Simulated assay, not measured.
Amino acid sequence: MIKKKRWLTFFLAWIPGLGHMYLGFKKLGLEYMIGAILCIIFIPSMPSIFPFALAALWFYQLFDALQKAAWMKLSVEEHERMMFHPDAYSAPWSMGVPPMPSYPQEEVSPVWVGIGCVIAGFLLMVINVFPWLWRILVDMNIGTILLALALIGYGFRLLRKNTKV
Rank of each mutant, 00 (worst) to 15 (best):
M1E: 09
M1K: 07
I2Q: 10
K4A: 02
K4M: 02
W7Y: 11
W7M: 13
L8R: 05
L8E: 12
F10Q: 07
F11K: 14
F11N: 13
F11I: 14
L12P: 11
W14C: 15
I15S: 04
P16W: 03
G17C: 04
L18Y: 05
G19M: 10
H20V: 03
M21R: 09
Y22W: 04
Y22C: 13
L23A: 10
L23Q: 14
F25L: 10
K26D: 13
K26S: 12
L28C: 09
G29K: 03
G29E: 11
L30E: 05
E31Y: 07
Y32W: 07
M33G: 15
I34G: 06
L38W: 02
L38P: 00
L38A: 06
L38T: 02
I40F: 08
I40L: 13
I41L: 11
I41T: 08
I43H: 05
I43S: 05
P44I: 02
P44W: 01
S48F: 00
S48M: 11
I49S: 02
L54T: 01
L54E: 01
A56Q: 08
W58V: 00
Y60Q: 03
Q61N: 06
Q61M: 09
L62Y: 07
L62T: 12
F63N: 14
D64W: 03
A65E: 03
A65L: 06
A65C: 14
L66D: 03
K68V: 14
A70L: 07
M72I: 04
M72D: 11
M72P: 00
L74T: 03
L74F: 07
S75E: 12
V76S: 11
E80V: 00
M83F: 04
H85S: 06
P86R: 02
P86G: 01
P86F: 00
D87L: 00
D87E: 15
D87H: 00
D87M: 01
Y89C: 01
S90T: 13
A91L: 06
P92V: 00
P92M: 05
S94Y: 01
G96Q: 13
G96I: 03
P98K: 07
M100I: 02
P101T: 07
P101A: 07
S102V: 11
Q105S: 08
E107Q: 10
V108G: 10
V111Q: 08
V111C: 04
W112P: 02
V113Y: 00
G116L: 04
C117A: 14
C117W: 15
C117V: 10
V118L: 14
F122A: 15
F122T: 13
L124C: 09
V126L: 12
V126Y: 10
I127L: 10
N128Q: 08
N128E: 11
V129W: 15
P131D: 05
L133F: 09
L133G: 14
W134T: 02
W134P: 00
W134Y: 15
W134D: 09
R135A: 08
R135C: 02
V138N: 09
V138A: 14
V138K: 05
D139T: 12
T144D: 14
I145S: 12
L146E: 01
L147S: 13
L149F: 04
L151Y: 09
G153D: 06
G155I: 07
G155T: 06
G155D: 08
L158I: 06
L159V: 10
K161P: 09
K161M: 08
K161R: 09
T163K: 03
K164F: 15
